[in-house]
Amino acid sequence: MSPAPAVDIKTLTIDGKEVSARAGQTILEVARENSIAIPTLCHLDGLSDVGACRLCMVEIAGTPKLFPACVATVEEGQVVTTSSDRLKKHRRTILELLFAERNHVCSVCVANGHCELQTLGQEQGLTHIRLPYRNPKLEIDGSHERFTLDQNRCILCTRCVRVCAEVEGAHIWDVMGRGIDSMVITDLHQPWGESACTRCGKCVQVCPTGALFDKSKVGSPHPKYPEFLPALQMMREQQ
C-alpha cells in the first residue's frame, strides 16, 4: 500500500478567526467553510473563476493592495480581513455601477425576489444610486423556444459562458465587443433560437439575475437552482 500523499496545511486568520486550509485553496473557499460570508457574483461553485465582479475583494495585512478572494490562494500566517469600511464602500460602489450600467428595474423583472444582484444590494445596505443611470437601449432575444435573453438585466458575470463551455461542453455563449459595449452572445451573434444550443437550460439556472429566464416562468416566481452544479460535478467524478 502506498502511503497517502502528504497534504500541506496552512493556518491563517480570517476576520480574527484562526482557520486551517489545504495549500492551494482559495481564501473564499476557506472563508465559506468557516461560515465567513464574502459577497460574490461571478463566482459559482462548480465553475472556473474569472475574478470579474470584484465584490469578493479582501484585505491582506501587510499590503495596501486588495485581493479577489475567489482566486487568491491561502498563505501561511496570512491575516485576512473580509469586511472593513474601505471594502464596504468599494462593494457598494461596484453594486451602484452594476445597477446604473443597464436597465435593472426590479419591479418589472422576472427575477424579482430571486435575484442575486438585488439580494446583494440589500445585504450591502445600498439605499440609493449616486451615479447617473446610463439607460442604454438593449435588445431582448426571444427567438429560443424555451428561454429568453434580456440584455437589459445582464451583468456580464459570464457564468452562462462558463457553464456552457465547461459543463455542458457546447460553448454557444461568449462575449462580443469590448468595454461598456460588451455583450453576451450565442454562437457568432446569431439568434439564440437558431444557435447550436442544446436546450439544457444550465445557463438559465446559473444566471444570477433576470437576464436569462425560462419563458414558462413569466408572471410567476422564478427561483433558480445553481446548486445542481456541485452535485453534478460530484456525480461525474464518481463515475
Binding site: A52, R54, L97, R178, G179
Partner: peptide, 18 residues
C-alpha cells in the same frame, strides 16, 4: 480608457464610462 477597456471587470467597464 473607456473605449479600450476589455469589459471583463465591472469597475473598469462601467466605472470609466461613468
Amino acid at each position: 480608457c473607456m473605449t479600450e477597456s476589455c469589459g471583463k471587470c465591472i469597475p473598469c467597464r462601467a466605472g470609466t464610462a461613468q
